[in-house]
Amino acid sequence: MRSIQVLRYLPEESPQPFLQSFQVPVTDSTSVLDALNYIKESLDPTLSFRWSCRMAICGSCGVMVNGIPKLGCKDFLRNYPNDLIIEPLAHLPVERDLVVNMDSFLRHLEAVKPYLIEGKNAADSSQPNRQTPAQMARYQQFANCINCGLCYAACPQFGLNPEFTGPAAIALAHRYNLDSRDSGKAQRMAPLNSKNGVWSCTFVGFCSEVCPKGVDPAAAVNQGKVESAKSMLIQLFSGRAIGGAGQ
């Protein structure tokens, strides 16, 4: 048994969040999510948190563990021999206990159109859309994102300005811009070029440190700055956005 603390927020009981201690059984393989599930099943059924896959695939179990954004299912109690405090993800509004409102995150994802957009680069739709391994390697790393939002909880610029498009959305925009089958770059550059796009990043780099899937969003954002600078220059001199479709 060991003690862990969880930040509770029960708006109908108290307007202020408060820390609550629980005694949970531990083995070497007890994850933070296991501990939360134990609390919910055996100690306090009112505790709210999200989870689904418990194998770092669904991206729903993000929490702050001792102040660092982590996936509850991929982080283990054995990593924290001393104090352990579990809080909701930073920079997002808390609805209840460890459940945060992800709307602004989803809005930013939507804004960059994270899907293949048909156009001159797409094969005719009756044909399979072929891609060589080398073409795939250009974007593959950025395709591993599971939309967990840990990078938004890590990003101080998103904390200061929730209108910042943010690491995961920019990494996904970059992923599709690099895809040889995609023709949507011109549409994606508009949100990326804006002050709330890539230019809000000051290259803190913590997003890439906390990403549980090794996506390196900081690299995507800073490659995005080069692309955005090019795109604005082209627009200034030719009147068209990069990618050719702007009008």
Binding site: W199, K225, A229, M232, Q235, L236, S238
Partner: peptide
């Protein structure tokens, strides 16, 4: 026709 300066700002210059 939208102006070719639409949406442009100086941030890329400072960044370069």
């Amino acid at each position: 026709k939208p102006s070719r300066r639409q949406g442009l700002h100086f941030e890329p210059l400072w960044w370069l």
